[in-house]
Design a protein around this nucleic acid. Structure first.
Lengths: 213, 213, 213, 213
DNA sequence: CATGAATGAGAGTTCATTCAT
DNA sequence: GATGAATGAACTCTCATTCAT
């Protein structure tokens, strides 16, 4: 490996790290002030950079914050892929799914809310279509994996036969709805967080509701 | 009834109608451009009024659009109250619930998304606290009714025993998640709407998952 | 006197009374919120009328509030005319002057401040020139009377010889300056009002400073 | 001195200069159109900047224009402090006072008028309380210095004994009243300016009226 | 690469004034 | 004469974005 090559790589690393720092700052801010409430200057201050610098790493504000959503979705995809790869009884698969979602929740609830604002696609004329289709590709991938998971369960007789995609939509909706609802509840009673336990209950009932006897 | 009295009442009616027109215009706009993307001038133009007039009926933009959320929640509360009032087998109650949600969906999905933006409470400094607490009161009322519904089912032995509020949270989350998700899907495949069928499936599975044998 | 004539007169009276009520309301408001801070709707509410009605009595907001200044100036002119009419020793004339000013102060300090805003003539494009010249005529009249007063004192050897108009300007400036300054002081120490005693002292020193020995 | 340090200082200078330019523009405008008549866009245009830039240097319109008043008051305080520091016969001190005021007049009469609008405190909800108290502190300081000046004259037997603060109020009122009055007169007879000569006369009479024989 | 001062379009909001009833 | 709902021009202020250094 030549020197030039190493330099190159170090530069790349440096760049990636910077990018991460900015996203980290954005995540902190979206939590406390929401998307519309956070200014680029806020992000710059939080990341200890100047506003101009942000534009060296992100095309605009929308894409900066949308990148958070991408990260979130990627994390969930990864988790779900692992869950679906295993050759295990349905119970364990459900458990793995639940864990993947749970990790998504850790990421930052506000980001998920923002994802939907993005995805309904209104008011984000600055989001490049490549970006949007990447978001959609990942969402679709999630539903895909979930559908596949249910398909395998149905085919080997562990689950009742229902439309796979509808089942996937249901689970994904349950997850996102719960994230948002728990986030809302926090606002008027900031102390408690029942996300985990309620999600667990949800999966339990879901499993029982689907199980083939 | 005196003439003055009649005049008075007609004026009241006129006023209410105007308010409705403005809300209607806002609903149309939130659908096409979202909350942040809709300007007060847009609303005025849509309602065929001048911008200043809007402020005779609503204190500011936030409250105007939040009023839509209030209407939506009120509609759902009403529907659920009817569902819970009936003395019927659980199946029918579930069916009534589903209908109440279904009507909420008709109202306008974007409004629900905006409700959550409001409720996470960030970035809406112009929303009076009375308004926010009214929003929260209604949300709480919904969960309350749902919890009561499950409670009755559990107590007369039709449903398995679970934490009532957790069950309520689950149903409410499922509904809201589904609304938002279907709305998102429309954006990248605008032709189909599986909300109704998926919600139906959800309730079916939920019922089976909870039913005491 | 015919009936028609009486009707006419009663109408006139009624009209004048209405006008007074509006001015009274404006005076109350200018005290508490200042000119720019008072809206026409405020005035209407205070006078228990509708906004539109104000325009039956005054051409616009500027003229309404400027009328207060006219009233104030007229009161002072009247008082000073009495003071200058008397054939009395200088001491008594000074005392009469002081009283005239004192009554002007009772009228409402804020009105005087507004008068100057009007008279520096900026930002009041809605004030008809007739109105402005009436304001100026009264101001000039005040200086005139004061100058005459000093003239008589100088000519009969009671006062030292100085430029009459300059003396008049001095007294008028002293008065207005004191009104405004005491008003300002009230804002950060609202309890005390030294206008009367300080004005008295001012006149005493002025007299001693001018008296021919 | 390091390079960084020098850069730093130059930046500071640049910043101060910009601020001055904006204030200068505001002063030009308040003279021609008054406070309420000048828009932020006017100021920006006059300063050859964009509206947004003004807000980098001043929190809002009120504070921008109030800064002019602060400058004016500071100038007067400075002048008066010099006047009171001298150990000189009363005549010279009076002369020094007069000069301090005279320079205040040069600053810009309209600013003084605006100061009083500010200080009566109505209708300026955007003025931070720190700003207001700074204005009041300076006003109080002026009266303080003046009172001290009179006190020394009284104690060494050059002036008759009167309430020091009342004397200070008188002089300050005379000054401000004269500024405003001469400004008003300019409006309907724009050619002449008797401020200097009238102020001189005022001080002469005042001195004679106070002098202990 | 990084900066941060400057930009300027665009938003929400106010309020003097009008006019159909 | 009186009303008050409606108007709409005009204002202040924000903030994503740019670009000279």
């Amino acid at each position: 490996m030549g020197l030039a090559e190493r330099r190159e790589r170090e530069k790349e690393d440096q760049k990636r790290r910077r990018r991460e720092e900015i996203l980290e700052a954005a995540r902190t801010l979206i939590r406390s002030k929401g998307f519309a409430g956070s200014t680029m200057e806020d992000v710059a201050r939080e990341a200890e950079l100047s506003p101009g610098t942000l534009y060296l790493y992100f095309k605009n504000k929308d894409e900066l914050f949308a990148s958070l959503s991408l990260d979130l979705l990627e994390g969930i995809v990864e988790g779900l892929e692992k869950a679906s790869a295993e050759d295990a009884p349905m119970e364990e698969k459900f458990e793995a799914m639940r864990k993947a979602f749970s990790e998504g929740y850790q990421f930052e609830p506000s980001v998920l809310l923002n994802l939907f604002n993005l995805q309904t696609g209104k008011q984000f004329p600055n989001l490049s279509s490549e970006f949007l289709s990447e978001l959609n590709r990942l969402s679709a991938r999630i539903v895909d994996i979930l559908a596949g998971l249910f398909d395998s369960g149905i085919r080997d007789g562990q689950l009742q036969d229902h439309h796979r995609v509808a089942l996937a939509d249901l689970v994904w909706s349950l997850f996102t709805g719960l994230v948002i609802w728990e986030e809302s509840k926090k606002f008027f009673g900031p102390d408690k967080d029942f996300f985990e336990s309620t999600l667990e209950l949800g999966f339990k009932i879901l499993h029982r509701g689907l199980k083939e006897e």
